[in-house]
């Protein structure tokens, strides 16, 4: 039966796309996922309406909401800034929480339901299944970020004027370039989530309870976010995965300032390497009992 063997080898990469697609579609068909995406889509709408009401009263929109750069103050002049403001508002918690839920559930949820054993006897192959799952979580990072960005763009266009974009550094660029920068920002935000995606997937391989894995991942996120704000702990802060998250604002400057973003990418790559290998080591040797 070496025929099955050679077949396995030659079509492995192509057929794995089928498994990846099946993974992603399965994730997107859970109502829980849809609820998360609905929350993500709702945040820009809420921010937009709040800013609109506040400025409608004649007062000026208070800047600095959500820590980060003062995007909120700029929304009334240009709706495009709602995209930046919304990403800055969702990146510290809503977005990574959604990723934590999806990644935490990825393996543990299937172990809990028992479907994992049927995928493995199909046979999906442990490495292939884990890679497909991580790829689908990454795709979800991109989808989640784009949902925020598109919802913000639509809300911004409806509630505020659009036009040439005055960057944080003071230079003015055409709207088309502003749009391009917004897309770039969305990609950078999605890339910022790869670290917690790997961490969540690793936690997911440790347990047979999807709920426990999700709760642990989200709990870790909250803890790390708190530690990142305590001045006395500044020594460890450069190693925390959210530390450079808001560096994406540097894309809205002219010239673009890359240093912190580079640190961000390096840190995310480190988390992906460490927790990706740990997840692989665990999942490929683990007894599947559920």
């Amino acid at each position: 039966m070496s025929q099955a063997d050679t077949l396995t080898r030659s079509v492995w990469p192509i057929r794995s796309l089928g498994l990846f697609r099946s993974e992603l579609v399965t994730v997107l068909r859970r109502w829980r996922t849809l609820a998360l995406l609905a929350v993500l889509a709702g945040v820009p709408v809420l921010i937009g309406i709040a800013v609109r009401i506040e400025t409608g009263d004649g007062g000026s929109a208070g800047g600095g909401g959500g820590g980060g750069p003062a995007f909120v103050a700029l929304i009334t002049n240009n709706g495009l800034f709602l995209v930046f403001a919304s990403l800055a508002a969702t990146l510290p918690f809503f977005l990574p929480m959604a990723i934590g839920v999806v990644a935490g559930d990825a393996v543990a949820g299937e172990a809990n339901a028992g479907t994992l054993r049927y995928l493995l006897v199909a046979p999906a192959g442990r490495t292939r299944l884990l890679v497909s799952k991580y790829a689908s979580v990454l795709a979800f990072c991109l989808i989640g970020t784009l949902v925020v960005a598109v919802s913000a763009l639509v809300t911004g266009a409806l509630l505020f004027p659009l036009g040439d974009v005055t960057l944080l550094s003071g230079t003015t660029v055409p709207f088309s370039e502003g749009l391009l920068r917004a897309l770039l920002v969305a990609l950078v935000v999605a890339a910022s989530l790869t670290g917690i995606a790997a961490l969540g997937l690793f936690i997911s391989t440790l347990t047979n309870s999807g709920i426990a894995a999700m709760a642990t991942t989200v709990g870790l996120l909250i803890t790390v976010q708190i530690v990142d704000t305590i001045p006395q702990l500044h020594a460890v802060q450069p190693y925390l995965f959210p530390h450079y998250w808001l560096s994406f604002a540097d894309l809205v400057r002219d010239p673009v300032y890359w240093d912190e973003m580079r640190s961000n990418f390096q840190l995310q790559a480190l988390y992906v390497a460490v927790f990706g290998s740990a997840a692989w080591a665990r999942f490929t040797t683990r007894d599947i009992l559920a």
């Binding site: 057929r15 399965t26 339901a113 049927y118 995928l119 046979p123 999906a124 299944l129």
Partner: peptide
Amino acid sequence: ALIEGPALYGFLSGRDNLLRFDAADPTA
């Protein structure tokens, strides 16, 4: 194989369950 009872994706139709399990087999 049928091991320790069936395990299914409750939110998928019967047919979609089978499509998923078949997609997991790289030689299918």
